[in-house]
Simulated assay, not measured.
Amino acid sequence: MNTTATSRFADRGTDIDVLRVFCAGDGRFGNALGVVRDGRTHPDEASRQALAKELGFSETVFVDDPERGAVDIYTPGVRLPFAGYPLIGAAWLLDLEVVRPQAGEVWVRGDGEFTWIEARAEWAPPRTLRRYASAEEVDALEVPEPGEWIYAWAWEDEAAGRVRARGFPGRGDGIDEDEATGAAALLLTAELGRALNITQGLGSQLLTAPGPDGLIELGGRVRLERTMTI
């Protein structure tokens, strides 16, 4: 975190857990997530948006009720009704069976290695799914100019459902590339209609599986990177 953020919020005593969500099998990679366990430290939308911007993570989640799983999600620039990796991270950290973002009730399960949520693709913010001919083409992409949110993908092994992907938010808020994007994985799964094993960014792993009634399971590994007070 930069020194500006430290000085601006130092008197608030806000505890923030920094997680890595959608880690690879060896614990590396994953997308950095800030979790403010006590949302009362930033009780309104303006203060939460300011903190999310200062922290600079792809997303920051504020916990409003840890027993009910009520959470509030922000990127550095906007509030989100739903996002995959903040919900997986918060559920893992707080050991929850259900999380409740603005979009609705999201059920959670764990299998020892992965934490899974059940969600609907229509909850995901808009993403442009752009298919390429090979994983090598995806690897070679340059960060595009700010504009639409692009999820670039290609089959690594179509028969096995293995996908290579990169996410470019295009927001111009300092997040040029998203290391792991659960919402985009939901959209891609809904479009293809099958379970996927996605490698995104530097090596993060996202798993998906279509379920009944339009639900999609989204799973990943989580680890606690550090806890800080600002």
Rank of each mutant, 00 (worst) to 15 (best):
F29S: 11
E97Q: 10
R221I: 11
R12S: 11
T181L: 02
S7I: 14
T128C: 07
I88S: 07
V143N: 11
G104L: 06
V36K: 00
T41P: 03
V36H: 00
D173A: 01
E136R: 08
Y132V: 11
A184F: 13
Q200K: 08
C23Q: 13
D173F: 02
A185I: 06
F82P: 00
G203Q: 02
V61A: 14
Q200S: 14
P43R: 02
R221E: 09
P101L: 01
A135S: 15
L33Y: 01
E105Y: 10
G220M: 09
A50H: 00
E105P: 06
Y74A: 08
W107R: 06
F22A: 05
P86G: 07
V108C: 06
G112Q: 03
G69P: 05
A190H: 12
R127F: 15
E156W: 12
A190F: 13
A70R: 11
W123S: 09
G104I: 08
A183N: 06
A5M: 15
L94S: 09
R8A: 10
P43D: 10
P66M: 09
A121G: 07
R37F: 11
S58W: 07
P146R: 02
V78F: 13
S204V: 15
T199E: 15
A160G: 02
V99L: 04
A160T: 04
A133E: 14
G56S: 12
Q200P: 07
C23R: 10
I175L: 06
G13H: 04
D65P: 08
L129V: 02
E145H: 04
V163L: 00
G219K: 12
R48C: 10
V163Q: 00
P169Q: 02
Y85D: 14
V35S: 00
L188S: 09
P146S: 04
R131L: 09
R171A: 14
R40H: 09
T60W: 03
A124I: 02
F57E: 05
R223E: 09
P212I: 11
A103I: 05
E122H: 08
W123K: 05
E137W: 09
L218P: 00
